[in-house]
Amino acid sequence: MLILSDFRLHRPASLADALLLRAELGDEGAVYAGGTELLLALKMGVLEYEHLIDIKRCPELRGVQQVDGTVRIGAATTHRDLETSPLLARLLPALAELERHVANIRVRAAGTIGGNLAFAEPHADPPAMLTALDARVELAGPAGVRELPVEDFVLGAYETALGDDELVTAVVVPVPPAGVRATYRKLATLERPTVGVAVMGEVAGDTFATAPAVVVGAVDERPLRVDATPLAGASVRDRDALEAVVEAARDLVDPVDDLSGSADYKRHLTGVVTRRALEHIVDPGSPS
């Protein structure tokens, strides 16, 4: 039977109060938002905390807004909020589509984007996409606010640059300029993604204006950027250029054998999903 150990529950009503609690409790306190990852880990006894700080009552941490060429997503915004946000659908449709396919509806209704990043479970969908989109994580702490690119925030499996006295307050995603598209393709053999590949690039006809951003998620402990230089100025139908990038993706990852597949298979899938993501961004009707 899965049970929780006793803990104290703090429910600050403002970001300032939440930060005071963070500073006071340090690593004895866990930040709690949707709980979809944290409560599971607590129930299984993988993690144990004396304090949970519920940040859902901090109004500063919720909502999706357009701010100066970016979309600012409050850390406690749920996947379901993002899936249904008209603003996101208009400005970042690929992220909205990704959010529609995160886990299941119950997890989307409770789980938050900030929690997803801060928990840093490697087999997650959003980090690869946010990396490709050049998104930044906004962190608040005693010393003030700082921003880090997502790829500098996620350091490894369950490991981030978040300080014990800090909170993730928002994810800031630049709105891609006109002509730039993004897509995310994934394959899941079990519950979580086995391989997820995000691509962002400027496409005219079937040609990439510059090298697209290609990021492989869920295979390694953190999202990895693939060198897609061979596709700069190349058509997606240029098999040599395409396969060079696919090969680069395969070479880049360092998968491990686990229940979702062997390292060999995951390396192979990384190539397949990378190719399909690149084809999909040019031709959204291509098979996934």
Binding site: L9, G35, L39, K43, N104, R106, V107, A109, A110
Partner: peptide
Amino acid sequence: CEMEVCGACTVQLDGLPVSACTTL
């Protein structure tokens, strides 16, 4: 399942479905 995958414990919280097994 106790792990948010089976849905047998689904209730609505403010209108949305949640896993009551993994909700405080």
